[in-house]
């Protein structure tokens, strides 16, 4: 019984950790399937986290916070597209530049505006934050372990963004595989000159894809600063953008496998928190750091072709030059 409750709580924690990861990974999915490397996920998320927390603190409305977060991330996405698509600059360099710039800009602006040592003011109450929603009868259902506890912890008890992220997976799959836009998007990531020959603008498609990734990173960042915690702190993405990129690769650039990878990586994270200093039978204490490093090791092994194969979109990272 005790173990059962623990497992359910672990899974609930997994869902919470997976949400920003999933949003960022799907953001990366749109960008990379169109042929633009998504190295700026970290920066777009962090920028959105700051803007959302700042706007929510000032206006008292988390929805305005969400708007500011999305606007900021889209602005950064436009910068990435301007550098990497319009001016055919190195997309990896552009992504790193945005990541580093935002890592400094967030705390610098927070310090100047709020004077709290690089943080935003503590957000309070339902107005300024996305709080967990309790579904009907969830509290009553908790008493019955199965399926009541599952209902109360896994289905109920999350905030709006979590449900949005969950719904986004089938929606992304639909857009990517069942719509004309999705077909063109995939084509432009594999063979841009064919798309160009068909009279469709490569630049326009890639801008659209990168802007979608901006919107999703905006939601992910907003989740971090207004739902998962109550305000912006320095470096609060803590490598989640890179982890999302790893999840995207681990999911072989496809929506459902990416969801699986995000859940797996989030589960290792939740597990590491649980297993801190706990001695397991046979193996003893597993160092937390090793569990936390597991997603990165797995991704390297996958990329090396030791665990299945991951084939990237063919035209990824290559700026398209029309005259060639």
């Amino acid at each position: 019984m005790e173990t059962y409750t623990l497992i359910v709580l672990l899974l609930a924690a997994t869902i919470r950790v997976a949400t920003p990861l999933l949003l960022a990974a799907l953001a990366g999915l749109f960008s990379e399937r169109s042929g633009v490397i998504a190295l700026g996920l970290e920066g777009m998320m962090l920028g959105a986290a700051f803007a959302a927390a700042a706007a929510s603190a000032v206006t008292g409305s988390v929805w305005l916070g969400l708007g500011a977060g999305i606007a900021t991330a889209v602005a950064l996405a436009l910068l990435l597209a301007f550098a990497g698509v319009t001016h055919r600059g190195n997309q990896v360099v552009a992504g790193m530049a945005v990541n580093i710039m935002v890592a400094g800009l967030g705390p610098a602006l927070a310090l100047a505006w709020f004077n709290l040592g690089g943080q935003t003011p503590q957000l309070e109450g339902a107005g300024q934050r996305f709080l967990a929603l309790t579904w009907p009868w969830a509290d009553a259902a908790r008493a019955a372990p199965f399926p009541g506890l599952l209902y109360a912890e896994l289905l109920s008890g999350h905030n709006l963004v979590v449900y949005f992220a969950a719904a986004l997976v089938p929606f992304s799959a639909w857009v990517l595989y069942r719509t004309r836009f999705g077909l063109r998007l995939r084509a432009v990531g594999e063979n841009p000159s064919a798309v160009d020959t068909a009279g469709i603008s490569v630049t326009r498609l890639r801008y659209q894809a990168v802007m979608i990734s901006g919107v999703l990173c905006g939601v992910a960042g907003t989740y971090l600063s207004t739902a998962a915690s109550a305000g912006f702190v320095r470096d609060m993405t803590a490598g989640k953008g890179y982890l999302a990129l790893a999840a995207l690769i681990f999911g072989k650039w496809r929506p459902y496998p990416t969801l699986g990878a995000c859940l797996l990586f989030a589960f290792t994270d939740a597990l590491a928190t649980r297993l801190q200093g706990v001695a397991l039978p046979l193996v003893g204490v597993i160092p937390v750091q090793f569990i936390l490093a597991l997603p990165y090791v797995l991704t390297v092994l996958l990329l090396a072709g030791f665990v299945g194969t991951a084939v990237a979109p063919k035209a990824i990272g290559a700026p398209y030059a029309k005259e060639k």
Binding site: H87, G89, V93, A97, V98, I100, M101, A103, L105
Partner: peptide
């Protein structure tokens, strides 16, 4: 503060590299 220096680093990478 020092965060401003990080911003400048990022901008230099942006302008000298990507742009």
């Amino acid at each position: 503060n020092r965060d401003m220096v990080v911003v400048i680093q990022g901008l230099v990478i942006l302008f000298c590299g990507a742009l």
